[in-house]
């Protein structure tokens, strides 16, 4: 993304404007280095030196992301509200609107693709990886909650029946949610097994789990 051009002109301003025009950006999205201030020609004729500048594109991430998602949404011809939040651990884009289901797609396929491309675009030529999360109508948030509750229910089942349980195949980020949710669990541990796209999480008892007096005892009915 960090494109840069060098331009010369009669004055510094002229050179900057020429560079901005070539990059097709506004001054506020640019970083300007003045290489040579130039000098006026004597009597307007002799010894004049042109000014040289280097202009580098420097658009804030949130602006780049807004532009990308804006173009996608415009092409689809839908009205949406786009909320962009830049916080410590991630750059978040939340899309709200009526009739945005197709932005999510089957099993969240389209949302996943949008998210992946956003990550690529934002992290192009960047040293420090910036996590980008795109969400449509809180789809991801709800899905995460569901996965966390699935993780806990499965853990309870594993402890009760004392045998491992494998979950359905999931994508990497979905599996990660399960792993994270159960990583500090007292009795169970999680592993991913199988090959993509059929890789799935297995929840099993820790080898040294001491199940005496565990809080999951009792009949299934009584607890749930």
């Amino acid at each position: 993304m960090a494109k840069s051009v060098e331009k010369s002109g009669r004055t510094v301003d002229e050179a900057i404007n020429a560079a901005l025009a070539e990059l097709n950006i506004d001054l506020e999205d640019a970083e300007v280095d003045i290489l040579d201030e130039g000098s006026k020609a004597v009597l307007g004729l002799f010894g004049g030196k042109e000014a040289r500048v280097r202009v580098t594109e420097n658009k804030p991430d949130s602006k780049v992301l807004r532009e990308f998602l804006g173009i996608v949404v415009d092409t689809m011809d839908v009205e949406v509200r786009l909320n962009i939040e830049n916080n410590e651990d991630a750059l978040r884009a939340d899309i709200y609107g009526e009739d945005v289901a197709f932005l999510i797609g089957r099993h969240g396929d389209t949302l996943q693709a949008l998210n992946y491309l956003s990550n690529l675009i934002i992290n192009k030529e960047k040293e420090n990886y910036r996590r980008v999360i795109v969400d449509v109508e809180d789809y991801r948030k709800k899905k995460e909650e569901n996965l966390r509750s699935l993780a806990n229910r499965t853990a309870a089942k594993v402890v009760r029946y004392r045998r491992p349980v494998s979950l359905d195949p999931m994508q990497a980020y979905e599996r990660r949610i399960i792993h994270t949710e159960l990583q500090n669990h007292e009795y169970v541990e999680t592993v991913s097994q199988g090959e993509e796209p059929n890789r799935c999480v297995t929840v099993r008892l820790k080898p040294n789990a001491n199940l005496r007096n565990n809080k999951y005892r009792g009949s299934y009915r009584k607890r749930y």
Binding site: V72, M76, D77, F102, G105, D109, T110, A113, Y116, L120
Partner: peptide, 17 residues
């Protein structure tokens, strides 16, 4: 082909009209 696949998915969704 991960990026190609993502591009196709987005284009496919965008072409609903």
């Amino acid at each position: 082909g991960r990026i190609a696949k993502a591009i196709r998915t987005v284009i496919k969704a965008a072409s609903r009209n």
